[in-house]
């Protein structure tokens, strides 16, 4: 339209840029501090750019956090994979083969997505202490944490797959049935090949929430099995470790989920929307 309107529209960039600066501020301070040399670091100059790119802080932080980063990886990868397989099976059965009572089961599962975990924490710890699988105790260990994330992930993974499969037209399944396929055959030849987007959504969502979890980890693991969130929190509470190393450590702890977000942001967003139900 008119030139005048055009220019006022550009004024909208001012609040947009200011908001962006607000969101990027903590990232800026993490990186700027991380890349300073030990001699440069002081609280008085914390906003200034480093004189060069020094890796001292990152190396120091990595040295301190490496075993815990490894624990996080060992916990998150199986948890995400098992979760998405279970979610896919549940979603398929609930969306396409509605058995009597499915309409009660589904909301009852969904409720589990919203409960404050403090309300099940004591039984969970007691239960884990009592359970042994082939002589491997679940309490205090990485496998115990995997089981926990898989089970408390069921509501979300089931919901996401169910909603995804609900959009697949019935005719497609009927066609499979005409060809003589049974419930498993239809899943393998028709459903599974078109499930990849839903798998990506659930994988990265479970990856992110298990990676970022603190509560389950802090009550269920012993120090050898700590994931990086617990280790980082302890690092931040200690007086011995310099704050610049803490900043570098925070960045290392955030990096995996940040990379997932940067490269698969749209899938991440879909997971967020699913978590809000219909929104």
């Amino acid at each position: 339209m008119t030139r005048g309107r055009f220019q006022t529209r550009y004024l909208l960039y001012i609040p947009m840029v200011l908001a962006a600066l607000f969101y990027l501020l903590p990232l800026y301070i993490m990186l700027v501090t991380g890349f300073k040399s030990f001699s440069e670091v002081s609280l008085a100059t914390m906003w200034e750019l480093p004189s060069g790119l020094y890796l001292d802080n990152f190396i120091e932080a990595f040295r301190a956090l490496a075993p815990y980063l490894a624990n996080s990886v060992r916990m998150v990868v199986p948890a995400a994979i098992i979760s998405s397989i279970i979610g896919s099976i549940n979603g398929y059965a609930l969306a396409k083969w509605k058995f009597p009572g499915a309409d009660i089961i589904f909301p009852a599962m969904l409720f589990g997505m919203f409960i404050p975990y403090q309300s099940i924490l004591i039984p969970l710890v007691e239960f884990m202490k009592d359970i042994n699988i082939f002589g491997v105790s679940l309490y205090g260990t990485v496998p115990g944490l995997i089981v926990t994330h898989v089970i408390y992930g069921i509501p979300f993974t089931t919901l996401t797959f169910r909603n995804y499969y609900a959009t697949i037209p019935r005719e497609l399944l009927e066609a499979g049935r005409m060809d003589g396929a049974n419930i498993f055959g239809i899943y393998r030849s028709i459903i599974l090949p078109i499930s990849i987007p839903a798998f990506v959504v659930v994988l990265i969502w479970q990856f992110t929430s298990a990676w970022n979890d603190f509560l389950f980890a802090v009550v269920l693991t012993n120090p050898q099995a700590w994931p990086v969130t617990v280790a980082l929190n302890n690092m931040a509470g200690s007086q011995i470790i310099a704050w610049n190393v803490q900043m570098a450590g925070s960045f290392l702890a955030a990096l995996p989920t940040l990379l997932v977000y940067i490269f698969l942001g749209n899938y991440f967003l879909r997971g967020l929307m699913a978590g809000a139900l219909k929104g």
């Binding site: 609280l43 931040a236 989920t257």
Partner: peptide, 25 residues
């Protein structure tokens, strides 16, 4: 801009807390 506004969602409360601990010194 949308990606920038949303990225903190990908980070854990612990990381957020450790950084803001220094921002809110």
């Amino acid at each position: 801009f949308r990606s920038v506004y949303l990225f903190p969602m990908a980070i854990s409360y612990i990381v957020t807390g450790v950084v803001w601990r220094w921002l809110m010194n």
